[in-house]
């Protein structure tokens, strides 16, 4: 892969998060390093309490680390003002939740347009980019539907469109398939995968190995530390029987 020369969309450096203090101190994250490059989907797996949700909320600027850096598109979001952070979140970071979180009173197109409108884009321009995002993901037919007129899988696909509308390139997905049946969950994953193939960077938190398997890398968290990581090989290596051998270090133990 030629990723080395490119800038990561997201870079977590020595990320630590401690909840509480003294005797009740809990280390949710202990010095986590993780970079996600354009075109890459990274799955984070681990038992409950391993820190995977904390990692995602900090990466998305919804929580602050106790120490460490969170660099999104070149900016350390732990060092910016509250206002700058809000702007960064609107422009650069898309979140996808288990329960879709679409606004019920707005149509799919309006939901997708919302982050851009909040960012000061005119309503007309925001709608144009929302429709473009929906079309790119094969969802044009849903544009004028309200959330309660869509299936769970359709809502989640619209949520992915909202996460990646405009110039946003980072999508953080927290158990996005948790409320979906197996086949629908898979179609949501296929969409996420294709958006990453088209240049977005994604982190997927999941406890479902079958969905994690759509990722380029799978990172295993235990007690707030990365204990292991799979490394991508070429799609053909399984059939051709010729591994690519991109260096075999498998994360710090």
């Amino acid at each position: 892969m030629s990723d080395q020369s490119r800038q990561p969309v997201l870079q977590l450096e020595q990320l630590t998060r401690v909840h509480g203090s003294g005797a009740t101190e809990v280390h949710a994250l202990r010095g986590v390093n993780l970079s996600v490059f354009p075109g890459e989907l990274v799955a984070v797996m681990g038992p409950s309490g391993s820190g995977k949700s904390t990692l995602l909320t900090i990466a998305g600027g919804l929580d602050n680390p106790t120490s460490g850096k969170v660099v999104v598109e070149g900016t350390d979001i732990t060092q910016v003002t509250r206002k700058e952070l809000a702007a960064l979140r609107r422009r650069s970071i898309g979140y996808v939740f288990q329960d879709y979180n679409l606004i019920p009173a707005l149509t799919a197109a309006e939901n997708v347009a919302l982050p851009r409108e909040l960012d000061g884009t005119s309503a007309r321009k925001a709608r144009v980019s929302a429709l473009a995002a929906l079309e790119e993901m094969g969802l044009s037919h849903l544009a004028d539907r309200f959330p309660d007129e869509m299936s769970g899988g359709q809502q989640q696909r619209v949520a992915i469109a909202r996460a990646l509308v405009g110039d946003r390139r980072l999508v953080l997905a927290d158990e996005p398939t948790g409320a979906l049946d197996s086949e629908t969950g898979e179609s949501v994953l296929a969409l996420l995968r294709s958006r990453c193939d088209a240049g977005a960077a994604g982190i997927l938190v999941t406890h479902e190995p079958r969905f994690a398997a759509w990722a380029d890398r799978v990172v295993f968290l235990r007690d707030g530390s990365v204990v292991d990581e799979t490394i991508r090989t070429d799609a053909e290596s399984l059939l051709a029987g010729s591994g690519t051998g991109t260096g075999g270090q498998a994360g710090a133990k």
Partner: peptide
């Protein structure tokens, strides 16, 4: 688990 997930990733790419 590492090896199993790795195999799943490969199968999933073929499946796509």
């Amino acid at each position: 688990r590492h090896a199993t997930l790795k195999a799943m990733q490969d199968y999933t790419r073929l499946k796509a």
